[in-house]
């Protein structure tokens, strides 16, 4: 062990253990007793009015895509920046060598499994305003599905997978439609990313067609996140293939 030196490694372990010991009681307390919601004005207001304010049953999504939709736009921008930087740093210099696909056994299994793997992310995205999850979680699950297919079949386009151009279009359209849906609030004379105030229909809470603009924002986020993460992965893998 050259670095870190034995003494400093021991000090790091002791410090981490002390930090964990200090945090453990609070975590156990939160798990067994729960934090009283009534003491918090914002949380109790969301719980009381969330359903009528937004039309969404899943209050986490109501906060993410209605009350704090602007913060979600910022989060999406962070992912966009990360994908852009990875793309700029790892710009493929040679033509990528196609990778050998995995064994026929794996490919046959994937053929049977991929349709089922589609169900989960799509359901998560479309029902983001009803059940736990939303565009972000579903988008990541979709990206993992695409990475799985890329790994099994070798080249991205071998099994009718999405090409890089389609990925770019999906990413841009996701980001642009989120931005444009937010603009509807401005055109209606309220605020940017306004939901029911901008004239979107709340529907009857609990059904698929409810929550005003929230399901559309979920789809936009899902497209954007999935496309950005898959293109990030492909940039990393491609460079590896280009340099022997």
């Amino acid at each position: 062990m050259k670095w870190p030196a034995r003494g400093s490694a021991l000090a790091a372990w002791v410090l981490s253990a002390a930090f964990a010991a200090a945090l453990l009681p609070a975590l156990l307390d939160a798990a067994t007793r729960g934090v009283p919601v009534a003491d918090r004005a914002a949380a109790s207001a969301y719980l009381r009015d969330g359903r009528t304010d937004t039309g969404a049953v899943n209050l986490v999504t109501a906060v993410l895509l209605d009350y704090r939709a602007f913060d979600t736009l910022g989060e999406a921008t962070v992912i966009f920046a990360a994908a852009a930087i990875v793309g700029a740093l790892l710009l493929a210099r040679g033509t990528p060598r196609p990778r050998p696909p995995l064994s026929p056994l794996v490919r046959c299994a994937m053929q049977g499994l991929i349709p089922w793997f589609w169900v989960f992310p799509v359901a998560i995205i479309l029902q983001g305003h009803l059940t736990p999850g939303g565009g972000f979680q579903g988008g990541v699950a979709l990206a993992v599905l695409a990475i799985l297919a890329d790994t099994a079949y070798g080249t991205p386009t071998a099994a009718g997978g999405v090409g890089d151009r389609a990925l770019g279009i999906a990413e841009s359209m996701g980001a642009l439609s989120f931005w444009a849906l937010g603009l509807a609030g401005v055109l209606a004379g309220t605020g940017y990313l306004a939901n029911l105030a901008a004239g979107f229909s709340a529907g009857s809470p609990g059904t698929l067609a409810s929550g005003g603009v929230i399901p559309f924002l979920n789809v936009a986020i899902g497209c954007k996140v999935a496309a950005a993460l898959v293109s990030m992965y492909r940039h990393i893998v491609r460079e590896q293939e280009a340099t022997p």
């Binding site: 986490v60 736990p132 939303g134 979680q137 990541v140 990206a143 993992v144 993460l229």
Partner: peptide, 14 residues
């Protein structure tokens, strides 16, 4: 559950 889903998809998968 929302956070759990994000953690499983991002942390464990991606």
């Amino acid at each position: 559950l929302d956070v759990a889903m994000a953690e499983a998809a991002i942390g464990a998968g991606l």
